[in-house]
């Protein structure tokens, strides 16, 4: 099949970017979108042109490294997938595919389709962990965790930090990401002890990083590759309110 890519090209954060059109032949429907981009890049190399920069790592939908706004949707036309799991069979022969980087003030563009998501790392660095000294692996049964709590913790911990929630949110809010990180630890006895400090610190950092507010449009949970529920945000708001009211 033949597709027309319309791709955002930008040398660096400081420089202006613009769309560039590329027609690519010999695309097969079982190629992944990223493989089609690899193929495009090969042709660009042969023509001595600059390749399109895009992020990826595992290409198995589990690492959270890839992320492109494909034809008006974060991670492409399907709900709850990563960009690497989008295949060319999702598009039609001759279709134009628009590729844009995640757009958010907190995600400066590094190059082309690659954005700097280190704001998310800095949120985790603010108490997004437990402060006990771990040492060697402890006896697994010394702290009992109910199955339902372990499941809830896992549901939140599934967040791979891809940034699709922020990309799709009209306010570029990082609420779903931050809530997932807070709740995942709060469901476990080791994490619960420090929930108050954690929720205050992580929410403050989220604000410092210039993310917007949550309007509960629900777009984030539709685009999240891990199907993290928007109720996680409501739970973060609950914990934040409790932390504020019981602050000493």
């Amino acid at each position: 099949m033949r597709v027309n890519f319309k791709i955002w090209r930008q040398e660096s954060h400081q420089e202006e970017g613009s769309f560039k059109d590329y027609s690519v032949d010999n695309i097969t429907s079982d190629m992944s979108l990223l493989e089609a981009l690899d193929y495009l890049n090969e042709t660009l190399v042969l023509k001595d042109e600059k390749v399109v920069a895009f992020d990826y790592d595992c290409r198995e939908g589990i690492c959270g490294q890839c992320g492109i706004f494909v034809n008006g949707r974060a991670h492409g036309p399907h709900d709850n997938t990563t960009t690497c799991q989008v295949h060319m069979r999702s598009f039609e022969d001759g279709q134009t595919i628009v590729l844009e980087p995640w757009r958010a003030r907190a995600f400066p563009i590094v190059k082309d389709l690659i954005v700097d998501r280190s704001a998310l790392d800095r949120i985790i660095q603010k108490n997004g962990y437990i402060t006990v000294k771990t040492g060697g692996a402890g006896e697994a049964n010394s702290i009992l965790v109910a199955k339902k709590d372990a499941d809830k913790a896992m549901d939140a911990a599934a967040c791979i930090g891809c940034g699709a929630c922020i990309a799709t949110c009209k306010n570029s809010s990082a609420s779903l990401f931050t809530a997932a990180k807070i709740n995942h630890l709060d469901h476990l006895p080791q994490g619960k002890l420090e929930t108050n400090e954690r929720v205050m610190a992580m929410v403050s950092q989220m604000e410092l990083e210039n993310f917007g507010s949550c309007s509960f449009t629900g777009a984030c949970e539709i685009e999240c590759p891990q199907s993290i529920s928007i109720t996680e945000i409501a739970r973060m708001n609950n914990l934040f309110l409790k932390a504020k009211l019981t602050k000493e």
Binding site: C214, F216, S229, I230, T231, E232, I233, A234, R235, N237, N238, L239, F240, L241, K242
Partner: peptide, 8 residues
């Protein structure tokens, strides 16, 4: 949800 009601 803003006021913290999160039970589905």
């Amino acid at each position: 949800k803003t006021l913290g009601l999160y039970h589905k």
